[in-house]
Deep mutational scan, measured.
Amino acid sequence: SSGGSSILDRAVIEHNLLSASKLYNNITFEELGALLEIPAAKAEKIASQMITEGRMNGFIDQIDGIVHFETR
């Protein structure tokens, strides 16, 4: 797709992000992006959206560029 990722790509990214949230206590956007094979800024945006929508527990430290995952 030309304008970003398809629905399937997005679903795969979100699935992998949720998997990462179970493996890590926290991770930088750079590391997360590398893990998900997407730019760091996109990793931040998707993580932020999932947390806001209540689909993933955690919070974002924008100063240090880190996602902190919280286990249920």
Score class of each variant (00 low, 15 high):
residue 15 H to S: 13
residue 14 E to D: 04
residue 30 E to G: 07
residue 40 A to E: 04
residue 15 H to C: 07
residue 59 F to I: 08
residue 54 G to F: 04
residue 43 A to V: 14
residue 24 Y to S: 04
residue 46 I to W: 06
residue 28 T to S: 13
residue 35 L to G: 00
residue 8 L to G: 11
residue 63 I to C: 07
residue 33 G to K: 02
residue 29 F to N: 00
residue 4 G to H: 13
residue 32 L to A: 01
residue 57 N to V: 11
residue 69 F to C: 03
residue 57 N to P: 11
residue 21 S to D: 02
residue 32 L to C: 01
residue 64 D to T: 15
residue 69 F to M: 02
residue 19 S to Q: 15
residue 65 G to N: 08
residue 11 A to M: 10
residue 56 M to N: 02
residue 45 K to D: 12
residue 33 G to D: 02
residue 49 Q to A: 10
residue 36 L to D: 00
residue 39 P to E: 08
residue 56 M to W: 04
residue 65 G to Q: 10
residue 61 D to V: 06
residue 59 F to H: 11
residue 66 I to W: 05
residue 8 L to R: 10
residue 51 I to L: 08
residue 63 I to Q: 12
residue 56 M to K: 00
residue 12 V to E: 12
residue 29 F to A: 02
residue 60 I to P: 00
residue 64 D to I: 11
residue 70 E to T: 09
residue 42 K to A: 15
residue 52 T to R: 09
residue 50 M to C: 03
residue 44 E to I: 15
residue 9 D to P: 06
residue 5 S to Q: 12
residue 7 I to N: 14
residue 15 H to K: 14
residue 29 F to S: 02
residue 36 L to A: 03
residue 5 S to Y: 04
residue 32 L to F: 03
residue 8 L to D: 13
residue 54 G to T: 02
residue 67 V to D: 01
residue 49 Q to H: 06
residue 15 H to L: 11
residue 15 H to E: 15
residue 8 L to V: 12
residue 57 N to A: 10
residue 54 G to P: 00
residue 69 F to V: 02
residue 64 D to K: 15
residue 57 N to H: 13
residue 60 I to C: 02
residue 3 G to M: 11
residue 31 E to K: 09
residue 32 L to T: 00
residue 18 L to Q: 07
residue 54 G to K: 06
residue 54 G to C: 05
residue 3 G to P: 13
residue 38 I to Y: 01
residue 14 E to G: 02
residue 36 L to G: 00
residue 52 T to M: 12
residue 28 T to P: 04
residue 65 G to S: 07
residue 36 L to F: 04
residue 59 F to G: 03
residue 18 L to M: 08
residue 45 K to M: 14
residue 30 E to V: 12
residue 7 I to C: 07
residue 54 G to M: 05
residue 63 I to Y: 09
residue 52 T to K: 14
residue 68 H to M: 07
residue 30 E to M: 09
residue 25 N to F: 09
residue 47 A to S: 05
residue 22 K to Y: 09
residue 42 K to I: 15
residue 46 I to Y: 09
residue 27 I to S: 02
residue 18 L to A: 05
residue 32 L to S: 00
residue 7 I to T: 13
residue 10 R to K: 10
residue 19 S to Y: 10
residue 41 A to M: 08
residue 71 T to Q: 13
residue 33 G to C: 03
residue 34 A to K: 14
residue 20 A to S: 05
residue 24 Y to R: 06
residue 40 A to L: 05
residue 60 I to L: 05
residue 67 V to P: 01
residue 50 M to D: 00
residue 42 K to Q: 15
residue 57 N to E: 13
residue 32 L to E: 00
residue 55 R to P: 02
residue 34 A to R: 14
residue 71 T to S: 11
residue 4 G to L: 09
residue 58 G to H: 02
residue 4 G to W: 05
residue 31 E to A: 12
residue 24 Y to I: 07
residue 14 E to T: 04
residue 8 L to E: 11
residue 9 D to V: 06
residue 50 M to N: 00
residue 46 I to T: 03
residue 69 F to Y: 03
residue 13 I to A: 05
residue 29 F to Q: 01
residue 7 I to L: 12
residue 46 I to G: 00
residue 16 N to S: 09
residue 34 A to T: 10
residue 49 Q to W: 07
residue 32 L to K: 00
residue 60 I to N: 00
residue 61 D to Y: 07
residue 72 R to S: 14
residue 36 L to W: 05
residue 48 S to L: 10
residue 68 H to W: 13
residue 60 I to K: 01
residue 7 I to F: 13
residue 39 P to S: 14
residue 5 S to L: 11
residue 51 I to Q: 03
residue 26 N to Y: 15
residue 51 I to P: 00
residue 54 G to H: 07
residue 29 F to E: 00
residue 24 Y to M: 07
residue 38 I to R: 00
residue 17 L to Y: 01
residue 27 I to P: 00
residue 4 G to N: 12
residue 71 T to N: 14
residue 19 S to P: 01
residue 54 G to L: 05
residue 27 I to L: 14
residue 23 L to V: 11
residue 68 H to S: 06
residue 29 F to G: 01
residue 15 H to D: 10
residue 3 G to H: 12
residue 19 S to L: 15
residue 34 A to C: 06
residue 29 F to M: 06
residue 28 T to C: 03
residue 30 E to P: 05
residue 30 E to H: 08
residue 65 G to K: 12
residue 43 A to E: 00
residue 16 N to H: 11
residue 53 E to K: 03
residue 53 E to G: 07
residue 7 I to R: 08
residue 40 A to R: 06
residue 22 K to C: 07
residue 30 E to A: 11
residue 6 S to P: 12
residue 32 L to V: 00
residue 20 A to E: 02
residue 17 L to C: 03
residue 43 A to Y: 02
residue 52 T to G: 09
residue 17 L to R: 01
residue 66 I to M: 09
residue 1 S to M: 10
residue 44 E to T: 08
residue 58 G to I: 03
residue 37 E to K: 15
residue 34 A to F: 11
residue 63 I to T: 09
residue 62 Q to D: 09
residue 14 E to L: 05
residue 6 S to W: 08
residue 42 K to M: 15
residue 1 S to P: 13
residue 65 G to R: 12
residue 17 L to E: 01
residue 6 S to F: 10
residue 56 M to T: 02
residue 59 F to R: 12
residue 34 A to S: 09
residue 24 Y to C: 04
residue 3 G to S: 13
residue 72 R to H: 12
residue 39 P to W: 03
residue 20 A to D: 01
residue 23 L to N: 10
residue 67 V to W: 03
residue 57 N to R: 09
residue 51 I to V: 05
residue 54 G to A: 04
residue 5 S to N: 10
residue 29 F to H: 00
residue 25 N to I: 11
residue 20 A to V: 15
residue 52 T to H: 11
residue 44 E to W: 14
residue 32 L to G: 00
residue 20 A to P: 00
residue 35 L to E: 02
residue 18 L to F: 07
residue 59 F to V: 08
residue 16 N to I: 14
residue 17 L to V: 08
residue 67 V to Y: 02
residue 20 A to L: 15
residue 17 L to P: 00
residue 18 L to I: 11
residue 48 S to D: 08
residue 36 L to K: 00
residue 38 I to D: 00
residue 53 E to I: 05
residue 3 G to Y: 06
residue 62 Q to F: 15
residue 57 N to F: 10
residue 69 F to N: 01
residue 33 G to M: 02
residue 24 Y to G: 04
residue 5 S to A: 12
residue 3 G to C: 07
residue 50 M to F: 05
residue 35 L to F: 09
residue 35 L to D: 00
residue 66 I to C: 06
residue 51 I to H: 01
residue 27 I to Q: 03
residue 26 N to V: 11
residue 63 I to L: 10
residue 43 A to L: 09
residue 68 H to F: 09
residue 25 N to T: 13
residue 58 G to S: 02
residue 43 A to C: 05
residue 59 F to S: 08
residue 13 I to R: 03
residue 30 E to C: 05
residue 60 I to H: 01
residue 70 E to I: 11
residue 26 N to H: 15
residue 25 N to H: 12
residue 54 G to D: 04
residue 42 K to V: 15
residue 39 P to V: 04
residue 4 G to Y: 04
residue 38 I to C: 04
residue 5 S to M: 13
residue 33 G to N: 01
residue 34 A to Y: 11
residue 10 R to V: 14
residue 51 I to W: 02
residue 12 V to Q: 13
residue 35 L to H: 04
residue 4 G to Q: 13
residue 37 E to H: 15
residue 38 I to H: 01
residue 23 L to T: 08
residue 25 N to V: 10
residue 34 A to P: 02
residue 45 K to R: 10
residue 1 S to H: 12
residue 35 L to T: 02
residue 49 Q to K: 07
residue 47 A to I: 10
residue 28 T to F: 03
residue 44 E to V: 15
residue 51 I to A: 02
residue 50 M to W: 03
residue 69 F to R: 01
residue 32 L to W: 02
residue 50 M to Y: 03
residue 49 Q to V: 07
residue 56 M to R: 00
residue 3 G to Q: 11
residue 44 E to L: 15
residue 72 R to W: 13
residue 13 I to G: 02
residue 71 T to H: 14
residue 55 R to N: 05
residue 42 K to P: 02
residue 5 S to W: 04
residue 34 A to Q: 11
residue 1 S to K: 04
residue 39 P to L: 04
residue 60 I to D: 01
residue 64 D to W: 12
residue 46 I to C: 03
residue 33 G to F: 02
residue 55 R to T: 08
residue 11 A to S: 08
residue 69 F to K: 00
residue 71 T to D: 12
residue 49 Q to S: 08
residue 64 D to Q: 15
residue 56 M to E: 02
residue 47 A to C: 06
residue 57 N to Y: 10
residue 8 L to K: 11
residue 10 R to M: 15
residue 15 H to W: 10
residue 16 N to P: 02
residue 23 L to W: 08
residue 7 I to Q: 10
residue 49 Q to F: 05
residue 5 S to K: 05
residue 22 K to N: 07
residue 34 A to I: 11
residue 4 G to F: 05
residue 64 D to R: 15
residue 44 E to F: 13
residue 54 G to I: 03
